[in-house]
Design a protein around this nucleic acid. Structure first.
Lengths: 347, 347
DNA sequence: GGCGCTCGTTGGATCGATCAAGGGGGCAGC
DNA sequence: GCTGCCCCCTTGATCGATCCAACGAGCGCC
């Protein structure tokens, strides 16, 4: 009854090898082969060895669909892939996805991407969930007013968010995030250590909790060091020319010697203004950005920037997901990781 | 026997609804429900309507694992995710992945990411293939000497490559690529139209076929316009400072008024040299890059750059994949798409 | 009215793995 | 020598969808 025959060479058989094929050839039952794969401890050493050898000979790999059906799991983690916005320097997604793929693989999971549908923000999630296509989700865009996290909680779907639940302090879901305030504290203290006293802040509009968080790091560090902040802060859109304008105004009105920015995009605006005014970044005026984007790395005058530990974020997320999925009690509801500062010529 | 009851609210039932549940409730057989989903034409309109309504009421979605098992397909496309290299401006992957996810979704596929293993370049492919976890692959890194495409061909695994098989002109696999030479032709002609006659090339080392292809676009356009090229070309590593050095040497020795570069990374190097020499990009010296990266977009002096039509590439790849998977004869072995030029201040 | 045909529907088998019980052999204990 | 027990392994059922062969109703035709 051997439906598939091994062809000696490296070419894949037309019909892949099944567990029954291995069982027959090794002279054991299907269950024994299954155990050899999933519960090796249950087999006698010599049987295990024989089965393993047969598996290797036939190049057997368990059929995912069949396993998924029986175990009601998929070993897949769903991630809604929102691409980097054009015209900005925010390159978080690329690096994060890579880290997540790596961390997932080590835990035996693969990452399934699905597109964002602006019309129906939970549509993609709903489909995958109801068809039991994924075991869990990673939610990346937990900014204010995003319904995904709340909706998934209601559905009792397992997921971990990259980002704190800003809007709801009794939120019941688990999250991992980077301490933005700590990042700007690092940046500000770094500038203070270099002798700067008039350090300006250029951030996002007030309705962004992430932006306000980052701003607070600058503010507290300035206060702790007894330095002035009045007239030294600006809140604008996250686009290059807004950063440039803000820098121009601040330079004219408050004469700062250094800038801390909520994003590399804004920092690029500052650099533009410096360039126009023939001011040398790093020598005349120091600039620090946020995200350690490619732009910060390849800009002729390397841009000092706060770097999020995305590799650690991914590892932490996967670790938490495994706890969730194994129905262990999750140790902590939220994990906050410390960013680092990539110091370059601009400071 | 209804194992799962609908709970009225929006919360997901503990045990998802199955096809049998829908059948029972609608008073038809399982096969009829299946047909309502997959072959609606086979049902009488009133029956179809009734079944559809029941499906909606119960929030039924076919179990992916069961369907995959029976049909021996997964509706998944595998993609080895290689992240952007740090320190370069090449941001192709991010945009491409997004386009691929979108195009796949429209065709009913989802994208499965798996990590690159440097030790075993075909390991990830092999696993997914043998466990029938994906229907097909998209291979992105087809540079010289990469074994993936050849290996997949041998395995008779369905896949489409983003990138031409440079090393093997009798390669039997299907591919989609962007015409790099056409891109640099666009760039060079654009500069000629602006009145430039001494246009320099800064590209990659000779062992990169992609680099040589892009170079040829510059070369032929110069020749076609009767312009000189001797002493105006340079081949270096794809890092910023190499671009800067090459620009310095070329400026000293050959006095070009414009630069065409094989990458935005190199173009950044050129801009650096211009900045040091107090030359204004776009006014004194024109610069064109390649890839339309974020860097090109947010650099204070917007960098003119060749933009790959990644959205079209993704659509074309998915279209070809569908043909492959439906065992239709594939129309063309390779598709070559035309890039465009994103013109900014630097030219 | 009977026959054959099409169309819609039905129950049973199947995909390939895992789960839940059941069975056989070896060894110790009385 | 028999019982009991443990260890290792096997057998049958199951996950939920689709494929297959066959069946019943409705229609036209003679």
């Amino acid at each position: 009854m051997g439906r598939s025959e091994h062809r000696g060479g490296s070419q894949l058989p037309v019909t892949p090898t099944t567990l029954a094929d291995v069982a027959e050839r090794a002279g054991v039952s299907r269950q024994t082969v299954s155990n050899a794969v999933n519960n090796p401890d249950l087999l006698r050493p010599d049987t295990l060895e024989r089965v393993r050898q047969t598996i290797a000979e036939l190049g057997y790999s368990p059929n995912r669909a069949a396993r998924n059906l029986r175990t009601r799991t998929s070993s897949l983690i769903g991630l809604r892939f929102t691409p980097t916005q054009e015209g900005t320097a925010n390159a978080t997604m690329d690096r994060f996805v890579h880290s997540l793929v790596e961390a997932s693989e080590e835990a035996g999971y693969a990452v399934l991407l699905f597109p964002a549908d602006d019309e129906d923000p939970v549509g993609g999630y709903d489909n995958l969930l109801r068809s039991t296509a994924v075991d869990a989700f990673v939610v990346t865009d937990t900014y204010l007013g995003n319904p995904q996290a709340t909706w998934l909680s209601q559905q009792r779907a397992p997921f971990v968010a990259f980002g704190r639940p800003w809007d709801d302090d009794v939120a019941r879901h688990v999250w991992v995030d980077v301490d933005g305030a700590a990042g700007t504290r690092l940046a500000t203290q770094h500038l203070i250590d270099r002798g700067h006293t008039r350090i300006a802040w250029i951030g996002w509009r007030k309705d962004s909790p992430i932006g306000e968080d980052r701003r607070s790091g600058w503010l507290t560090t300035m206060h702790d060091n007894g330095l002035p902040t009045t007239g030294l802060a600006s809140r604008v859109e996250d686009v290059v020319h807004s950063g440039a304008e803000a820098a121009a105004v601040l330079l004219d009105e408050s004469a700062p010697t250094a800038f801390v920015c909520a994003s590399d995009t804004l920092a690029m605006g500052v650099l533009h203004t410096l360039w126009i005014r023939q001011l040398a970044p790093g020598r005349d005026i120091a600039v620090v950005g946020f995200d350690d984007s490619q732009v910060a790395q390849v800009y002729p005058v390397g841009l000092t920037s706060v770097r999020q530990p995305l590799e650690d974020v991914a590892v932490e997320i996967v670790r938490t997901l495994r706890q969730l999925l194994s129905h262990q009690p999750v140790e902590t509801r939220g994990v906050l990781l410390e960013p680092t500062l990539a110091i370059r010529e601009s400071s």
